[in-house]
Design a protein around this nucleic acid. Structure first.
Lengths: 218, 218
DNA sequence: GAGTGGTCTAGACCACGCG
DNA sequence: GCGTGGTCTAGACCACTCA
């Protein structure tokens, strides 16, 4: 029998779907362009995850003003609150739920170099995240989206952000250690899992005295 | 002689560079992914431009809060100022010039539905834009980047933006018709032409009471 | 009908990572 | 050595636009 040489998996997909190698490659190219999979030379193609080094916090566009590396992600995370709640009209609409449906609500502060910089209010649909507690959030090392993947099987694949400039209310100002006259970035994010299903609403307040929101246009 | 059928241009590029059709397609795919060219079914592949309908203002991410269409771009543009100047240290660094080099400086206000919403300060390197005047800016219909293309042969192909929340100074507040306690988005953009050459520094102040900066993460 | 872009075929060879 | 990803070949057929 003639020896088979290389490309076993690629050819496997070809046989499975009755198409040629080039077509399989093109399809995977498109998944890769959407950041749904990641390719690694000589190793293989893998489902993209928020857990692996180098692409952690890939949805976080706030970077330090000086080009310092920040060693990937905030140094300190403090859970202020984590409670069950009923969805208000706007939260329900963002998450594709009905007003009054069960949601999980989290408030936390992220600090860089000891300075509280981000205050986030997060709303999650109740049923996919049943069992999420403040303790679990507090004890988990690494990005929240990595926890969502490993503990709840929810993978965020894309998000939309709406950005405004606002002043904080009294409590927000207190939690960030600024005056209520300090202008802050308001970043409202809706994150989606597969099939365009919204799975998180996140309202962030960012201090922009030492950091800025960085965006690339093309 | 056997009749040639179709794909004359595509085959032309193949002969010219001694490569196959698929390779030419892949190269053009990459240019298309970077928005350097645009393809149109049955018509051809064209260099991307800021002038054509539908992709005008493609670097402007400020959109109205209600999903209204805004009929593409601001209704009114007012040139406040347009003067020759010498580059300060930070402007020079952004544009790849030396401190004191000649620059053109423009200040203008954009209004939506009669409401002044964007105040922009724009710095351009002196030599590529020699001959640009306030009159030419004021009389030109369409996006400024389209004018740069047709009148000066400078095509912006990508840009970086740094976003902060700030309060305006007294004059900025006056020009936008807001109080100096109003939080505004500060959007600093460096736009690049081919070969990663910076060709514009633009500092914008955006009102975000009726509009927001929209960003897609993936 | 000629000339485009869009998709697909059925392979080939090279570079890389790992055992 | 073997299985990956990366690139390339030399075509084919279809859909679309325009004269």
């Amino acid at each position: 029998m003639a020896p088979r040489r290389g490309h076993t998996e690629r050819n496997g997909a070809c046989r499975r779907y009755r198409v040629s190698q080039g077509t399989v490659r093109k399809a995977i190219d498109e998944l890769s362009a959407e950041n749904l999979v990641v390719r690694r030379q000589g190793k293989g193609t893998f489902v993209a995850t928020h857990a692996e080094q180098g692409v952690q916090y890939r949805f976080l566009k706030l970077v330090p003003d000086n080009g310092s590396v920040e060693s990937e992600g905030p140094a300190a995370r403090t859970i202020i609150d984590c409670k069950r709640n009923r969805a208000s009209a706007d939260v329900a609409r963002a998450l594709g739920l009905r007003t009054g449906d069960a949601v999980l609500q989290v408030r936390r502060v992220l600090a860089f170099a000891g300075v509280p910089t981000i205050l986030e209010d997060i709303w999650l649909p109740g049923s996919p995240f049943k069992g999420l507690t403040a303790e679990r959030l507090a004890s988990y090392q690494g990005p929240m989206y990595a926890l969502f993947e490993t503990e709840f099987g929810v993978r965020m694949v894309r998000a939309n952000e709406s950005i405004r400039a606002v002043n904080p209310d009294a409590e927000q100002a207190r939690l960030l250690g600024v005056s209520s006259q300090t202008p802050l970035l308001s970043v409202e994010r809706v994150a989606y899992t597969y099939n365009d299903a919204p799975m998180e609403l996140r309202r962030g307040l960012y201090r922009t005295d030492t950091h800025h929101y960085r965006n690339v246009l093309s």
